[in-house]
Write a protein that binds this DNA or RNA. Structure first.
Lengths: 337, 337
DNA sequence: TTGTTTTATCGAAACGTTTTAATATATTAT
DNA sequence: ATAATATATTAAAACGTTTCGATAAAACAA
């Protein structure tokens, strides 16, 4: 392996000058720049990460933390966001360290190693995440950004999805297409995103003069699973056991919507003619199921990208006031509506 | 942040001695050891990764590469293996760098950055992976291990799943439970695991004297998707459009089995009484669907753990002859059979 | 006793960068 | 012409470890 020394020798300059061109800093004459660039190419020189990081006192790593339940479950959602981040880092010299934390998290024991050893410059927290972990990061003043999560009453640097408007739009479209009686199926409201989607749903009803109509809503409360096909199935069962005349269902997310459609098919209810279904997220399966699922597309890659960008900015200048960036979403009409 | 220097000063010894105790090397007197350990604790000293890596000429990173199609799809399989590895690294001072490569991979352009810059000590390749990537690693003599994949005619360090015996066992059980006509539903045979599962299936039929029976097999060939619910659905449609009397279906994996069950339910065929279904992998959904899916459990965490262990060994001593470690699997009987 | 070997400690070099401050030359302004 | 500024290059220090070799004391063997 060639070092900066070899490059310097080959180009007939000092180490310092080579460093300048590698980092695009200071002044260097056109001619020497060429010499150095050539030498670098010929020797296929790559600066050694660890040496570089030692000198700059940065780690070059950023952490990505997600609840194990979120990562392991059917939800590919947060993996996609991760990938978006990973893509974004490809143009930089950062690496992402992915780890999970468990539900009952104790900073004393369960702290991710990269935090314990201070091996990251900052951290992205994806989705719902233990609050004492957030506290820890604040105390240690580790730069961090929350993705798709928030804590009411607190303001952190965060990337959020425009859940409210997405839901509003979807339900509004459903109404405009002639549906009269639109139900909501979702799980618990632990996750603020679900709450926001519900808010958008309700508001769309209001605005269209159905606010005090006997619209239907069903929330199934589970302990562990906030959203899942089962939540959807049970939701449908409950709704139709009451002899309701629902002709459209807005679901808190696609996973739940899949369960909803499943159960509707079981009950021989035609989608979308008798009941239209709309989900949220646009996970891969939603364009592969039958009928294909109308949904609100969340640009997961962009979310990841933006998270990385924001975090980089915070690392650069840690003391600006926390900001929230909202990623907008798009209603995707498919067969189910 | 405190450095090794601070520790040395506080303990009243030299830097070298502190280094010795950190790395558990050489001789150090009981008394000094205590002094140093205490100093480390009091100062909450953590060795700086980059400095350490610079001195030892290791990167402390290992790469985890997976096809983007494999990672993004419904398949959570390779994410779980990743998690298993991540767990294993927690007891070491290694970090895992996860990245994806695309289908049409050109080492000249698409090479993961951590390979380009030699920022890893070794690499784990998960699942089917571009062959020219493997070639690249060989040429550059980067230590690597294949997980759940192999290339016929070549022997690499690898962790494989005991697909043959798993399939054999599952089908054997199906027959023992009284099923007479067992079909196979799977996708293409690009992935050797699918091929092996098919082999196990066939062998079980043979052994039970059904080898030259008119057993059913259906392979749906798709370009991109080798396995998926759609493959399963189409498989079922094909099988029953011929008026066959299949009473059991062995699927190449759970994802496919979910599609199979879906279509059987559509056709009002009772599971397992009329047709039993068995999958492979034991993904999370298989214990949540209705009826719950009998399957062959692949201990994904163990696979990841073993992959890390093997890779570490190879990094340690790169020139031992390549070996293959087989992870055994277990038939899990649930409602669908 | 003397000579080995084992145990214990440390100084100094090495790992490959970045960065600071010094120096020199070229350019521009007065 | 002189002073000021912009451009260009470099030597040397610094970043925080590990490791090699030297040295010395302690334990053991003859």
């Amino acid at each position: 392996m060639s070092t900066i020394k070899d490059v310097a020798k080959k180009a007939g300059v000092s180490i310092s000058t080579v460093s300048l061109v590698i980092n695009k800093k200071g002044y260097v004459a056109q001619k020497t720049l060429e010499k150095i660039t050539n030498a670098i190419k010929e020797l296929n020189y790559k600066p050694l990460h660890s040496a570089r990081k030692l000198a700059t006192k940065k780690t070059g790593n950023i952490g990505y933390i997600v609840w194990d339940v979120h990562f392991s479950e059917v939800e590919i959602f947060y993996s996609q966001i991760f990938l978006g981040m990973e893509y974004a880092t490809r143009e930089t010299d950062n690496y992402i360290l992915l780890t999970t934390v468990k539900e009952h998290f104790d900073p004393k024991v369960d702290l991710p190693r990269f935090l314990k050893y201070k091996d990251v410059d900052g951290v992205v927290l994806a989705g719902r995440v233990p609050h004492n972990l957030i506290d820890y990061l604040e105390n240690q003043s580790v730069p961090f950004v929350l993705v798709d999560y928030g804590i009411s009453g607190k303001i952190y640097n965060s990337i959020v999805i425009d859940n409210y408007n997405g839901a509003f739009q979807a339900v509004d479209q459903l109404i405009k297409s002639g549906k009269k009686n639109i139900g909501f199926v979702g799980g618990s409201f632990y996750h603020p995103s679900v709450k926001e989607r519900y808010r958008g749903y309700k508001e769309a009803l209001e605005v269209n003069g159905k606010g005090n109509n006997k619209y239907i809503e069903r929330n199934s409360y589970f302990k562990k699973e906030e959203t899942s096909p089962e939540v959807g199935q049970i939701g449908v069962k409950k709704i139709f056991s009451n002899g309701n005349t629902v002709d459209g269902i807005f679901c808190c997310n696609d996973t739940t919507a899949l369960g909803v459609m499943h159960e509707l098919k079981n009950q021989n209810i035609k989608i979308p003619d008798e009941v239209a279904v709309v989900g949220f997220d646009d996970i891969t399966s939603s364009s592969f199921c039958t009928p294909t699922l109308s949904t609100v597309r969340v640009p997961k890659f962009d979310v990841g990208k933006e998270a990385f960008k924001l975090l980089s900015e915070i690392i650069e200048s840690p003391n600006v006031t926390p900001q929230t960036r909202t990623i907008s979403v798009e209603y995707i009409k498919r067969q189910s509506s």
